[in-house]
Amino acid sequence: MSTAELPDGDWIRGITIRQPWATCILAGKNVENRPKPWSWRGWVLLHAGKAKPEPALLRNALVARTVRGRGLPLGAVIGVARLTDCHQDPDGAPPCTEWAEPGAWHLVVTDVQELALPIVVGGQLGLWRPTQDQVRGQLPDLRP
């Protein structure tokens, strides 16, 4: 399948994630906590939300260690990842990762790739369908 034949948004989604969590994913955070389960599996553009991070979050030891020396772009796609699973930890079980919040649904991401330059685009809550122009710029070889 050539790039020209890829259907707009049918094989990839965008996910808007607040900072500093979006940058943490680029640096090794492998779950995103959400209040509801998601059925989508596949590629997602990692879009950093427009809101500035709360100062208290940046003082969290795990977050501070993870984002040290990195910028926190806002309102831009900063990477791409493959969403492979969505689960909750069983009651009383230890968290699946140090990033997992108890009671939350954990979106598991793999194959994380950081973009060389953030792509400034609008995002939205939940999963959204990007246009091919939002994908092709820095990811010309990305395929379903």
Rank of each mutant, 00 (worst) to 15 (best):
residue 52 K to T: 07
residue 120 V to A: 10
residue 40 W to F: 10
residue 59 R to N: 10
residue 36 K to P: 08
residue 36 K to V: 11
residue 50 K to G: 10
residue 89 D to F: 06
residue 48 A to H: 01
residue 99 W to H: 09
residue 111 D to G: 00
residue 123 G to P: 00
residue 91 D to F: 08
residue 122 G to Q: 14
residue 43 W to H: 09
residue 78 I to Q: 10
residue 37 P to H: 15
residue 64 A to I: 12
residue 92 G to A: 05
residue 108 V to A: 03
residue 111 D to T: 02
residue 82 R to E: 04
residue 40 W to K: 09
residue 65 R to H: 10
residue 126 G to K: 06
residue 121 V to Y: 14
residue 78 I to S: 11
residue 61 A to G: 09
residue 44 V to E: 09
residue 103 G to N: 01
residue 66 T to W: 02
residue 105 W to M: 07
residue 113 Q to S: 08
residue 106 H to K: 14
residue 104 A to H: 13
residue 111 D to F: 02
residue 80 V to Y: 10
residue 122 G to V: 05
residue 106 H to Q: 15
residue 125 L to N: 06
residue 41 R to T: 14
residue 104 A to K: 06
residue 68 R to A: 15
residue 54 E to P: 05
residue 121 V to A: 15
residue 62 L to F: 04
residue 49 G to V: 02
residue 103 G to Y: 09
residue 111 D to A: 03
residue 68 R to G: 05
residue 40 W to H: 11
residue 102 P to I: 00
residue 97 T to A: 13
residue 85 D to R: 15
residue 121 V to G: 12
residue 72 L to H: 06
residue 123 G to W: 05
residue 110 T to D: 11
residue 128 W to K: 06
residue 71 G to V: 00
residue 41 R to L: 13
residue 43 W to G: 04
residue 60 N to P: 10
residue 127 L to F: 03
residue 119 I to H: 09
residue 66 T to V: 03
residue 117 L to R: 13
residue 42 G to E: 15
residue 92 G to T: 08
residue 75 G to K: 12
residue 77 V to E: 08
residue 106 H to D: 11
residue 91 D to L: 15
residue 125 L to P: 00
residue 110 T to R: 12
residue 126 G to E: 05
residue 112 V to Y: 07
residue 98 E to H: 12
residue 46 L to R: 06
residue 42 G to C: 10
residue 122 G to F: 15
residue 48 A to Q: 04
residue 128 W to Q: 01
residue 54 E to Y: 07
residue 125 L to F: 10
residue 50 K to P: 07
residue 93 A to H: 13
residue 84 T to N: 09
residue 40 W to A: 10
residue 110 T to F: 04
residue 106 H to A: 04
residue 109 V to H: 02
residue 85 D to A: 14
residue 38 W to Q: 14
residue 83 L to W: 01
residue 52 K to H: 07
